[in-house]
Nucleic acid binder design. Sequence first.
DNA 1: CGGTAAACGAGACGGTACGTCGTGTCTTTGA
DNA 2: TCAAAGACACGACGTACCGTCTCGTTTACCG
Lengths: 196, 196, 196, 196
Amino acid sequence: MVESRGRGRPRDPQVREAILEAAYALLQRGGLAAVTMEGVAERAGVGKPTVYRWWPNSGAVAMAALMEHAAPATTASRSKSPITALRRQLRALAEIFATPLGRSVGAMLAASDTQTELSKSFRNHFIGARREEGRELLERAIEAGEVWRGIDVDATLDLLYGAVFYRLIAAPANIDSNYSDRIVSLLLAGISAELH
Amino acid sequence: MVESRGRGRPRDPQVREAILEAAYALLQRGGLAAVTMEGVAERAGVGKPTVYRWWPNSGAVAMAALMEHAAPATTASRSKSPITALRRQLRALAEIFATPLGRSVGAMLAASDTQTELSKSFRNHFIGARREEGRELLERAIEAGEVWRGIDVDATLDLLYGAVFYRLIAAPANIDSNYSDRIVSLLLAGISAELH
Amino acid sequence: MVESRGRGRPRDPQVREAILEAAYALLQRGGLAAVTMEGVAERAGVGKPTVYRWWPNSGAVAMAALMEHAAPATTASRSKSPITALRRQLRALAEIFATPLGRSVGAMLAASDTQTELSKSFRNHFIGARREEGRELLERAIEAGEVWRGIDVDATLDLLYGAVFYRLIAAPANIDSNYSDRIVSLLLAGISAELH
Amino acid sequence: MVESRGRGRPRDPQVREAILEAAYALLQRGGLAAVTMEGVAERAGVGKPTVYRWWPNSGAVAMAALMEHAAPATTASRSKSPITALRRQLRALAEIFATPLGRSVGAMLAASDTQTELSKSFRNHFIGARREEGRELLERAIEAGEVWRGIDVDATLDLLYGAVFYRLIAAPANIDSNYSDRIVSLLLAGISAELH
DNA sequence: CGGTAAACGAGACGGTACGTCGTGTCTTTGA
DNA sequence: TCAAAGACACGACGTACCGTCTCGTTTACCG
């Protein structure tokens, strides 16, 4: 039986695109605060109710715009050793979060409610995807014998990504380019005196 | 030379208190969005300009209210071993940030501009203080021979606090009570295969 | 030459009926303001463009609905004397205009543009018809010798119906049941001192 | 005991004036429909909430603007005979109501709710005042022996003003210059055959 | 009898205005 | 001279209808 596919006029994907484009532009200059429903509608050449038809509030539009435009994942280098690739990925992440736009992402992640579908997918887009990539790298490192088989992979990932994120929030603008290297090295070596 | 000590009616500290009290109450029900200058002024029985005389905007009032009310530091247990104390502190931190109010703090940390004096002191209050405590514990652990002398203390602290913070944002409500234990253990042991 | 009588699907009179029914219902509760194209369409179970296919705007729909439902003329009693019948008619008119629906009619009469075909027919329906009936009664009264042959019939009718209408607008809810009697009597007798 | 005369900043009468001025200008071009709260606020160089602080809706603003600008009463000529003055007044009334602005007044009178203070005073301003003037003229005519002492003055006034108003609505633009003369004459003479 | 043209329901669209809320500045009166 | 009260210009909020448009579907007529 064929699904009855909606009766009225179908939604125009170009409208969606125009709105996200406008939101993204506003986000760049002015940050999150500049993404107002009114401003987005005007810039997109679209009626305000139309924006509301697609997203319930300005935060959601901003999220959607960010997800549409931001690198959907990282370009993981396959050639290098997994540990090196991990270092690269962390460095790239740090650089992204140092951007004004990256700060917006961080703020939204921290501020967004836990429940809505959109904020889940936002989290998944900006955290989950990279984390999965990191998990893969970590597992390849284990296979390669560079990382111990018995580790708690989830906790390890938390430590890695958490440090970057934390630094961003706790002491912004202090993430030098080799910060991620130090983290990885530290984690690799452990801090227990017995090991050294 | 005598300081001319203000000519007119002096600022009333009770007014300050009333404002912060009102802001805190609004923060509890309704979160950050509920802390409006207007609402605070009304609830405090105070004129709006008076609120503006003390703080420049609603975010600042909320920050000040949180700093006034939140545990100014943790009650670090001195008796236990430093590592155990660190584990306790991390667990306490995770619990605090899991609170609605804690989430507000997280959101403000992520959203606040980097520069203003207030946001610096806010960060210092909620992150710096605990971090200093953590540093002290870590150094005592080094003295006690539990942690290797050569580690990068700052990076270690980033890893520890970052993981908690990150978990909170990335996958809220999934911090079980022994999460901090796993982190500390993992970090102690390192992840390098060579060590195991 | 035969008019090519439309090629496509003919208009459905039941749709027209449903729309007017819906409009009338909305008119009763909520008055003129409640008759929105959107509301009418929904209540009639009809698409908005369909409503627009029949009438150009909400005012027109309301007018049409009123004309469809309101007494198309009065049931003039033939038996009585013309003057008595006139008194009855005026009293009935006053009662109708005291109704919420009647007030709507008044408002539409006062507000409607002069030109459109619909507002002309609306005026004709609610004013013209009764006026013609009144004219007939007046002429029968002349025939019967109750009214002087030389009077200006149009002006007389204006005076009669105008008073009711005016009272409705000028001092609403003050039209007692014998108000029309007083008017007729007054007009019959004249106000000149010489006559008395 | 002195009346406590309000604590805050007093309302600025210039603001009131600016709003009414703007509303009146919009009323002239575009009629009632052009008097939107938004448009008025913009044209007056005033915030929307300020307009709402003075009047509850656009209709009220329009009424107030009309009352502020329209001739507060007519300048009744004292010199002539009362009947002649009455004729003049009626003619002036007809001319005013034939104006676009006058039609607006008529529409508002018909549409306005009965109860609010503003619509009462509006009615009083545009109808009551002239009616009182008419009553005075009528009474002077009685004194002068031109009109019979026993008449129902209220009903007479209704007949006079009602006819003008009615003609305006029922058959707009058909009020020739001597229409009012015919009405007055007719009413003076009565329509009863017995009198003639 | 099958094609076609219009009417139909649904509802998205660009707009305008609504009435409310919060901001940050200002101007009073009262203490 | 500061504090309360609150009016003010501003601007965004989210909603309601407007009148137009594009869909897919239905129903007559005409070839």
